[in-house]
Design a protein around this nucleic acid. Sequence first.
DNA 1: TTTATTTCTTAATCTTGATTAAGATTTTTC
DNA 2: GAAAAATCTTAATCAAGATTAAGAAATAAA
Lengths: 190, 190
Amino acid sequence: MNQNLTEYIRRYISISEDEVALFQSYLMPKTLKKREFLLKEGKICKSRYYITKGCIRLYYIDTKGNEQIIHFGIDNWWITDYESLVNETASEVYIQAIEKTELLELPEKSFDELCHKLPQIERLFRKIMEKTYIAIQKRVGYLYSLTGEELFNTFISANPEFAQRVPQYMIASYLGMSPEFVSKIKAKKK
Amino acid sequence: MNQNLTEYIRRYISISEDEVALFQSYLMPKTLKKREFLLKEGKICKSRYYITKGCIRLYYIDTKGNEQIIHFGIDNWWITDYESLVNETASEVYIQAIEKTELLELPEKSFDELCHKLPQIERLFRKIMEKTYIAIQKRVGYLYSLTGEELFNTFISANPEFAQRVPQYMIASYLGMSPEFVSKIKAKKK
DNA sequence: TTTATTTCTTAATCTTGATTAAGATTTTTC
DNA sequence: GAAAAATCTTAATCAAGATTAAGAAATAAA
């Protein structure tokens, strides 16, 4: 686990062993059972979470009462509700484990402290945020220019492991289409 | 101009007059005529740009040959192609002035230097990135749960100045709908 | 101030993908 | 291993919004 995290960090910034150790001392391990919640609507999100192993979904309930998945998180991703965390407002989303998941929790207070002690950590998170933004911008591009069928096939080729780990109706929700339509696409492919 | 920028920065971080002056010394003023390009497909993006006054669009040409607007930039927004900037790869997008626009250019080399001298600048950009991410995530939520008509009306109420400054067919593109459909929505409202 | 270019509108037709509903299958839980 | 819960499939009907095409209006340029 430690080794994974160190490697992950060093993809973004240069940092000494001691500094990684300091960073780690702020992280609190946490385990979620399948279907357990990390955050529920109405609560204020106070931490960032690094997924060491498992799978998470972030979703909200739309005006029609449907669960709308905004995104997934898997191994080596950070997940949090930035809106609630940054503005310190009640969250509008749910964060829930899709399978048994192991996390490292970084409370926002610790994060702020850490950034003052180690400016590289601020750099790390700035860079992660840029990558995350690039990913979501790319997704918006796809949403606009691909048909539902192209969207689904592109997603599955790019993330083959998801088809195994995540129920189909959740992938449908993430891609903004009905589960019945996904069934139709799959039937067509045979 | 200076005053604006100082105020803008102080919304995110605490910083002294001298430090703001140092930051400003790295910024290069630039003016774009209407329809002039800041970046074209194939070029590598090397700077971040702060819009002091004007209006910009970032778009790409999709597989069907249509211009797809990813987002707009107006007064007091940073704009750049993060994908090209961060990965140092050829850009897939165009950044173009919709009206006469004044910018401050921050070359990425200067930015890196600056972040080492003033860690608060790294914090500033980390926080801006988080806000930008919150905005785009919210937009994805809207894209999924609103109908085209709701999407258009929500956008116009939230950004009334855009209806004045930006041609309707560009708003249609930004919202992922045809210009004809926007005409239909408007006709209905009367 | 006339011409050229951009932008917007209307209307008919067509397509993608939603909705509804019912049953089948798979996975969990007791 | 039986019952309950979660997930997936199929098919018929329907609606939102795209496409096509043509003309009108507004802006910009000469």
